[in-house]
Design a protein around this nucleic acid. Structure first.
Length: 479
RNA sequence: GGCGCGGUAGCCAAGUGGUAAGGCAAGGGUCUGCAAAACCCUCAUUCGUCGGUUCGAUUCCGACCCGCGCCUCCA
């Protein structure tokens, strides 16, 4: 049995852990709901996308070929009541007095900047809603043809009562029992309050609209994910991920649309990450209690944010505070310090059971991607290594294997140890050279040229050339 | 009200039917001219409350209390 054959994940649909069996051997198709691009991303987005990044990295690590699809919502996402609400993108465009597409593209760029900084691998396919209008129209036509949707006044709605399985993801089956009060459809063109928009009619002054069999309009929010996921992953695919807050209604509606249209199961495993909270409350744009990724990265390294996120399980809430992230920073530095120490330590006689650590790491990740447990293991390993270094160093091949372990797991799968090129400021050489040259200058000042020449010669042997100029010595690495 | 999740040390946070990972903080120590850094050691007889099942529960079941999420947009 290989590692890849023993992955268990928590399926929100069945509400239990299930063994992962891919649709096609060796291949994983995964779709994760991407951001609606009308503002900068915050720590909550970071948790979601870092979590799925680690999941994808783990699948790849154990040998799967992964096709990761993540959409960009650039139209159709309405504010407030879905009959009257304004499109989020349009609202921002109006406020900033720019084109809607300018809003969408500039915030999409901002999103990818943040994800790149965080070391999140780009999805293989990143489709936009506006780029898939024809696909969405086709899907809606199919739903009307099968009697699952109806047109009213240039808008099209999904008929929830026509789909038996509505509610199987969220447990919300009896839609009639939903609290009145919260959301009363006083004068709706919908036949039932739970019916949801597939296509919305748009007036001529609407900035984002397309022609369709039902006139000019724009697609509803849910339909894009069905159209695009099935286009790129097939009518049935392995994994669909997203935030828990999208479980209902968004994902419930996706299932209804997709399965009603194809008559086939839509998604085999649903994965939902839990949310970031602030003082116990959800971090969200509407509450205004969010910290953007950009702001946080001004104070902390990207690896600190990743580490902070991965210290809790993806299905648990994570409470954000300055204290919590500062604590994460301190902890991560210890881990990175051990890695650095190990690299520079001499080869000694110390032994270490790396295979045991590997097995435990695999077991942790295979158990519903338990990154916190995997991180705990890294700390235990680090203690072992520090003790060994204090006693004179690890023997070979343990030392090389241990370094490879950090590279593969901490740097690779979890992405919590920085890649050197990403942070040149961590290079101690300039400071070291400053110190060496100061000492050499003192020697020269007291005419101890034997010492100063020795320093220069030895540096040259090390590949560093020193030149004495009028304003002091300069140095450079000789290629 | 309906659906769902959670309550584990000062803080963050894993986990298991057999007696609690890891990190931060704190205390002690090694090292050091001093300091800092680094490293090592210690740190929950106890897992919201009360019952039940069990040889045994923090882990399973029930009730209750508290917090949160969704039910209108949100990762």
């Amino acid at each position: 049995m290989t590692i890849a054959d023993d992955i268990y994940l928590y399926n929100s649909l069945s509400r239990q852990k299930e063994k992962f069996v891919p649709l096609r051997e060796g291949f994983v198709g995964i779709y994760v709901c991407g951001p609606t691009v009308y503002g900068h991303s915050h720590v909550g987005h970071a948790k979601s996308y870092v979590s799925f990044d680690v999941i994808v990295k783990w699948f790849r690590f154990v040998g799967y070929k992964v096709r990761y699809v993540q959409n960009i919502t650039d139209v159709g996402h309405l504010l407030g009541d879905d009959g009257e609400g304004e499109d989020r993108i349009l609202k921002t465009a109006r406020l900033e007095q720019i084109e809607p597409m300018e809003v969408a593209q500039s915030y999409a760029r901002s999103y990818y900047e943040d994800m790149d900084a965080l070391g999140v691998d780009r999805p293989n396919i990143a489709p936009t809603a506006t780029g898939h209008i024809p696909e969405q129209i086709e899907l809606i036509k199919a739903l009307i043809a099968k009697g699952h949707a109806y047109e009213v006044n240039g808008s099209v709605y999904f008929d929830v009562s026509s789909f038996e399985g509505y509610g199987k993801l969220s447990g919300r089956r009896n839609v009639d029992e939903m609290e009145p009060g919260t959301r009363v459809q006083v004068r709706s063109e919908k036949r039932h309050p739970s019916d949801f928009a597939l296509w919305k009619k748009a007036d001529p002054n609407h900035l984002m609209r397309w022609n369709s069999p039902w006139g000019w309009g724009f697609p509803g929010w849910h339909i894009e994910c069905s159209a695009m996921s099935m286009k790129y992953l097939g009518e049935t695919f392995d994994i669909h991920g997203g935030g828990m807050d999208n479980q209902f209604p968004h994902h419930e509606c996706e299932i209804a649309q997709s399965e009603a249209a194809t008559g086939k199961p839509f998604v085999r495993y649903w994965l939902h990450n839990n949310l970031v909270t602030v003082n116990g409350q959800k971090m969200s744009k509407s509450l205004g209690n969010f910290t953007t990724i950009k702001d946080l990265l001004k104070k902390y390294a990207p690896t600190v944010l990743r580490f902070f996120i991965l210290q809790s399980h993806y299905r648990s809430t994570l409470d954000f505070s300055d204290g919590a992230i500062a604590a994460a920073k301190a902890g991560l530095e210890k881990l990175v310090e051990t890695y650095r120490r190990l690299r520079e330590s001499p080869v000694g006689t110390g032994a270490i059971d790396l295979d045991a650590y590997k097995a435990k790491f695999h077991a942790a990740m295979n158990d519903d991607f338990n990154a916190p447990q995997a991180i705990a293991l890294l700390f235990e390993l680090s203690r072992d290594i520090n003790v060994a270094i204090d006693k004179g160093g690890l023997r070979e091949p343990e030392k090389s294997n241990a370094l490879a372990f950090y590279d593969a797991y901490a740097k690779g799968v979890l992405g919590i140890i920085p890649k050197e090129s990403l942070q040149p400021s961590s290079n101690p050489l300039p400071k070291v050279m400053e110190l060496v040259l100061d000492i050499r200058q003192e020697a020269r000042a007291r005419k101890d040229f034997a010492t100063s020449d020795r320093i220069r010669d030895r540096l040259k042997e090390a590949g560093i050339e020193v030149k004495d100029g009028k304003d002091g010595a300069t140095w450079r690495i000789v290629g």
